[in-house]
């Protein structure tokens, strides 16, 4: 009896606190029917926002994955002075407010920034333009791949890699044929976390974007302007789309484990 009461309390808590928000997103989006909400997606500014979000995500994910793999290799396969400091440095963006993560780029490239005016005269726009958005996204998503790879690669040790090196394998061969195939689940998880964060980043991008509809608005920023303009259905439709994309990325992380369980049952 006591057990059932506890189960009930847990599920009520889970539903009210955690499940209700995504349900509200869907019901608000469909308030005037499915067709009405689909029609709002045809807005050219909305389409531009979706494209910009996808472009930014691809850039951030590719760049931070490549550098993240090399950094994880450096931080786990060698012991050198300054390693601990680098480990702390790589994780720093996680403890910095998103707004501050955007602000730092304005201090470099803004109208009152260090290099902003000079670049502006040369015709290169960084702040309140797409490059600024990319820089802010790169900054906030930087730690995820390293963070998920480091514990796993540390646990790997370096015996296999050293054996491969003795057998004559070069750096890229070892990395691509030995280390990464083994660490693929951790890498996959890190890439997906980077994707989710890059798509959903709001604070950092909001500071550097300048909010020009159709030009420098990503999906989260477009949601904000729609919501503040009382276009509730359009705002929640875009929100539902963005939430689906980010949630798919986050929940896909458990796919390898589920696949392994499935294979086990089959055998």
């Amino acid at each position: 009896m006591k057990k059932i009461a506890l189960w009930g309390a847990t599920w009520v808590l889970l539903v009210v606190v955690l499940l209700l928000p995504p349900i509200v997103v869907v019901t608000e989006a469909l308030k005037s029917g499915l067709l009405a909400s689909l029609a709002t997606l045809k807005d050219p500014d909305g389409i531009a926002a979706i494209w910009l979000t996808l472009e930014t995500t691809v850039v951030a994910v590719c760049f931070n994955t490549l550098c993240g793999i090399l950094a994880a290799w450096l931080l786990t396969k060698y012991r050198f002075p300054g390693r601990a400091a680098l480990l702390v440095m790589v994780e720093l963006p996680l403890s910095i407010s998103p707004v501050v993560s955007g602000l730092v780029w304005l201090l470099l490239f803004g109208a009152q920034g260090w290099w902003g005016p000079a670049l502006e005269r040369a015709g290169i726009h960084v702040a309140f333009a797409v490059p600024g958005i990319m820089l802010a996204t790169l900054f906030v998503t930087l730690p995820y791949v390293v963070r998920t790879l480091v514990p796993y690669m540390e646990h790997q040790g370096r015996d296999t890699e050293e054996a491969a090196a003795l057998a004559g394998a070069g750096f890229w061969q070892i990395l691509l044929r030995v280390t990464l195939p083994d660490a693929r689940v951790a890498l996959f998880s890190g890439v997906l976390l980077t994707t989710a964060r890059a798509m959903g980043e709001f604070g950092a991008v909001s500071v550097v974007s300048g909010h020009i509809p159709g030009l420098t608005e990503t999906m989260p920023l477009h949601i904000e302007s729609l919501y503040n303009g009382y276009q509730t259905v359009a705002a929640f439709t875009m929100a539902a789309l963005l939430a689906c994309m980010a949630m798919a990325a986050v929940f896909l992380r458990s796919a390898p484990a589920a696949w392994a369980r499935y294979r086990e049952v089959q055998e």
Binding site: L14, L18, L19, P21, V25, G200, E224, A239, A246, V250
Partner: peptide
């Protein structure tokens, strides 16, 4: 399912949680 629900706030982009909580 309960375990997956725990990750929801983490998965939901902040702007989406913002407008949703404000509505709720």
């Amino acid at each position: 399912i309960a375990d997956a629900l725990i990750d929801l706030p983490f998965a939901l982009p902040t702007a989406v949680s913002g407008i949703t909580l404000a509505t709720l």
